[in-house]
Design a protein around this nucleic acid. Structure first.
Length: 481
RNA sequence: GCCCUCGUGGUCUAGCGGUUAGGACAUCGCCCUUUCAAGGCGGCGGCAGGAGUUCGACUCUCCUCGAGGGCACCA
C-alpha cells in the first residue's frame, strides 16, 4: 500500500504556525514512506478564501520548504483539488445518502433553526433535527419553497443511536465513542454548499488518502466523519491526531500572542530551515539528544510513533537560538541574498563592504532583521541618549578619548588589526585596560552599549568619521565640565 | 452541562519496573587576563496529588486535581 497523505488548508491568509506543523508532519511522513503528498484547498468558506489568501498560503508553504506531488496547481488523477470545484461530486453522494434514507431534507431556513435552537436552550430542552423532521408538515415544505427563492432544503445526516465507533489513531491508540453522544447533523447547507465534516470525508475517501494527520482539535469530530464513511461504505483511513501548539500562557496560539503565522516569521528575519527544524521538534522527537537536523535527516528519522501526545508551548526563544545558529553557518553572500528577499536595503554601500561587515557581524545576528540594527550606526549621525552620556561620564574618559584620537589620527595603514592595536596602545600609554578601556570608547564612538566589537566598528566607519565622532563626544563631555 | 485528549524543571524533550531522572532553550555565576555580544565551563530548578499492584514505581491500575479540545447551515 502506498502512503497517501494530504494537507488541506482552508486558505484564509498566511499559514498559522499550527497548520504549518501539520503540513510539515504530513510532508515528512509522506517523504519518509515514499508516499504521495497531496495539497487540497478546503475553500468552501467563500467569504474568506480569496485569491490573495490562496496566494500567500502557497507562498508560505513553499518558503518553508514543503512541496507536494499531487493537488492544487499540480493536478492528478483524483481532481479537481479545490472543494469549490467539486460541488457536483458532493451532490452525487448526497443523492445516494438521501435515496438510502441515511440522510433527509429539512425544510427550515438557517435563521429559523437558530431561533428554535435558542428557544430550546432557554427551556433547557434538547434540540434535535430529527424531531423537527418528524413534525415537519407538507404546508411547511410548500412555504419554505415559496419564501426562500434559490435556497434548497438543508440535508441532514441521520446518526444511528447507540453504536460504538472507534477512531483508530496512530498517536492516541483506539479512541472509542458512542454514537448516542452525537445527534443528526447538517451535511449540506440551504445554499447548497456542503459542510466541512462531510466534504472532507468525500474528498479523503475519493482521493484514497491512507493517513489523516491533523491537529487534535479534529479528534472529537472524527466520529461524525466515520459515520459518513460507513454510510457510503468507504474504508476507514488511519488517523494521527497531533497535539496543539500552545501560546506561553497555555491557551491556543492566537493573534493576541504576537506572531502566529509563517509569513510573519519570514518577515521578522527567520530562516525557513530554522523554522522547519524547530517545528519538527515541537511535538515530535527523534529520541536523540541532537537539536539540529537537515530536512533530509528529518525525513529519514520521522515516524508517527515518535509523535508526542502532550500539547507543546511555542517558545520563540528557542526558535531564535536555532535561527542564530543557521544564520551563522551561512556565507555572508548568502545571508545578504536572504536578507534582500525580505526587503533589507543594501544600496548604501558596496557589496564588498557589506560582505566584509557581515563576516564579522554574523555572530551577532539572531535574525536577518538584526542586520539593520547593526548597520544603523553607520548611516546615522552620532547622538547620545542622556543615560548613555551619564554612563560615559562615570568613566571620566576625556583624556582617553583625546589620546585615542591622537593615536588613531596618526595611524597610517587602516586595518582591523591596526585599529585594535591602536586601542591597546592607547590603553598602555594611559595604563587603562579591560572594560575601562573598551567600554567608554564604545559609548563615545557609537552612542550605544551593544554592537560590533569596537575596533571593528571603527574600522568600518573609517578614520575621518572616527575622529569626527570622538570630537563630538569630547565636546559633549566638556559642555558642563 | 456532556464527550474526548493530555499531565517529567519556566519551556521543548529523553526515559517505556531497579537511572546520582539525561539533553536543549531560558535564567544565574565563572572563564575568555580585550568591553556588550558570541563561545567555553559550571550552578539553580522537575516526575501534579492520593490510593493501590510489586521486593521495587516517573514508568502499570484506579481516583482526585489541573490544562487543552470538541459538542455550528466555521474549517
Amino acid at each position: 500500500m502506498t502512503v497517501r497523505v494530504r494537507y488541506a488548508p482552508s486558505p484564509t491568509g498566511h499559514i498559522h504556525i499550527g497548520n504549518a506543523r501539520s503540513a510539515l508532519f504530513n510532508y515528512l511522513f509522506a517523504r519518509h514512506n515514499n508516499g504521495t503528498m497531496i495539497l487540497r484547498l478546503d475553500d468552501t468558506d467563500r467569504k474568506r478564501s480569496t485569491d490573495e489568501a490562496i496566494q500567500s498560503m502557497i507562498e508560505d508553504i513553499k518558503w518553508l520548504g514543503i512541496d507536494w506531488d499531487e493537488g492544487y496547481l499540480k493536478g492528478g488523477p483524483y481532481g479537481p483539488y479545490r472543494q469549490t470545484e467539486r460541488m457536483d461530486i458532493y451532490d452525487r453522494y448526497i443523492d445516494i445518502l438521501l435515496k438510502e434514507e441515511k440522510a433527509y431534507e429539512l425544510y427550515y431556513s438557517e435563521e429559523e433553526i437558530k431561533e428554535i435552537r435558542n428557544e430550546y436552550v432557554k427551556q433547557n430542552k434538547k434540540f434535535s433535527y430529527r424531531y423537527l423532521k418528524e413534525t415537519e408538515t407538507e404546508e411547511r415544505r410548500r412555504a419554505f419553497k415559496e419564501n426562500n427563492k434559490g435556497l434548497l432544503p438543508a440535508v441532514v445526516f441521520k446518526v444511528e443511536a447507540n453504536k460504538e465507533i472507534v477512531v483508530n489513531d496512530l498517536v492516541r491508540g483506539n479512541v472509542k465513542f458512542n454514537s448516542s453522544e452525537f445527534s443528526d447533523f447538517v451535511i449540506r447547507r440551504t445554499n447548497g454548499i456542503p459542510v466541512y465534516n462531510y466534504a472532507t470525508v468525500i474528498d479523503d475517501a475519493l482521493m484514497k488518502i491512507t493517513h489523516i494527520i491533523r491537529a487534535e482539535e479534529h479528534l472529537s469530530n472524527t466520529p461524525k466523519q466515520l459515520f459518513i464513511y460507513d454510510a457510503l461504505n468507504f474504508p476507514h483511513p488511519l488517523f494521527a491526531h497531533v497535539s496543539l501548539i500552545l501560546a506561553p500562557d497555555r491557551s491556543k496560539l492566537s493573534k493576541r500572542h504576537g506572531a502566529t503565522s509563517v509569513g510573519q516569521y519570514r518577515d521578522m528575519g527567520y530562516l525557513p530551515e530554522a523554522l522547519f527544524n524547530y517545528l519538527a521538534l515541537l511535538g515530535w522527537s527523534p529520541k536523540d539528544n541532537r537539536e539540529f537536523f537537515t530536512k533530509e535527516e528529518l525525513i529519514s528519522l520521522f515516524t508517527l510513533e515518535n509523535v508526542n501526545k502532550a500539547p507543546a508551548v511555542f517558545d520563540i526563544n528557542k526558535l531564535t537560538w536555532m535561527n542564530h545558529h543557521y544564520i551563522e553557518n551561512l556565507s555572508s553572500g548568502e545571508i545578504i541574498k536572504r536578507a534582500e528577499l525580505i526587503g533589507i536595503d543594501f544600496s548604501k554601500k558596496t557589496k564588498e563592504w557589506w560582505v566584509e561587515l557581515i563576516d564579522v557581524a554574523k555572530e551577532h545576528l539572531n535574525t536577518l532583521k538584526d542586520i539593520e540594527k547593526i548597520a544603523a550606526p553607520f548611516f546615522e549621525e552620532l547622538t547620545f541618549e542622556s543615560d548613555v552620556l551619564d554612563e560615559l561620564k562615570t568613566y571620566q574618559p576625556v583624556e582617553l578619548l583625546k589620546k585615542f584620537k591622537e593615536n588613531i589620527a596618526s595611524l597610517t595603514e587602516w586595518s582591523m588589526q591596526n585599529t585594535l592595536k591602536t586601542i591597546r596602545q592607547t590603553g598602555k600609554e594611559l595604563k587603562i585596560k579591560g572594560r575601562n578601556l573598551y567600554y567608554p570608547l564604545r559609548l563615545a564612538i557609537t552612542g550605544s552599549r551593544a554592537g560590533l566589537e569596537i575596533h571593528e566598528f571603527i574600522y568600518f566607519i573609517g578614520k575621518e568619521d572616527t575622529i569626527k565622532r570622538l570630537d563630538k563626544a569630547i565636546k559633549e563631555l566638556m559642555k558642563d565640565a
